[in-house]
Simulated scan of single mutants.
Amino acid sequence: MPFARAFLCSLLLPALAACTTTAGPVPGTAEFAAVKVSRGYDCGVAVDRRRVMAGLAPAERGRFVAVNASLAVKSYKAPRHCDAAERSAVQHELATLTRR
């Protein structure tokens, strides 16, 4: 059963990635956390991924890991830099995620 679930998730990842690039993830979801962690890496902000994951429900951690891995590959292929204002906003959002 876990293999089937992982297989289904791998089929849904491209669709999920398309959703995150057009409308953006809903705050409070594993996808939102993954996007913020990925953006933190892009901006060169120190990211405590374990604390972010600890703030998620156990059922959401698998989604977080899958989306985060997908975003990491995209970020590696086309890194984006951010200015000081965005870096500050990302730091604030990551601090909020680690306090959950």
Rank of each mutant, 00 (worst) to 15 (best):
G28L: 14
S10N: 10
A66G: 06
A72E: 02
C82N: 03
G24E: 12
R63S: 08
M1I: 14
G24I: 05
V67K: 05
G40M: 06
A66D: 06
P2A: 12
A34V: 07
A4H: 01
C9Q: 10
R63M: 09
R87H: 06
A72Q: 00
V73H: 09
H92D: 08
R51M: 09
D83S: 10
A54G: 12
C9K: 10
L97V: 07
L71C: 08
E93M: 05
P27A: 15
D42Y: 03
K77R: 13
F64G: 04
G40E: 04
V73S: 08
H81C: 14
V67H: 02
P25A: 14
P58Y: 01
Y76R: 12
A59E: 13
A33Q: 10
R39H: 06
Y41K: 01
A34P: 04
V37A: 14
E86Q: 07
Y41D: 00
L13I: 15
F32I: 06
S88L: 03
A17M: 14
A57R: 07
V45A: 05
L94N: 11
T20W: 03
A4L: 10
A23R: 11
Q91Y: 00
E31F: 01
A4I: 03
R80N: 06
T20Q: 13
A59P: 03
T98Y: 04
M53V: 09
M53Y: 01
M53S: 11
A17E: 06
F7R: 13
A46I: 10
R51N: 09
A33S: 12
Y41F: 04
A15I: 05
R100G: 07
T22G: 10
M1R: 04
F7K: 06
L71E: 05
M53C: 11
T22S: 14
A18R: 15
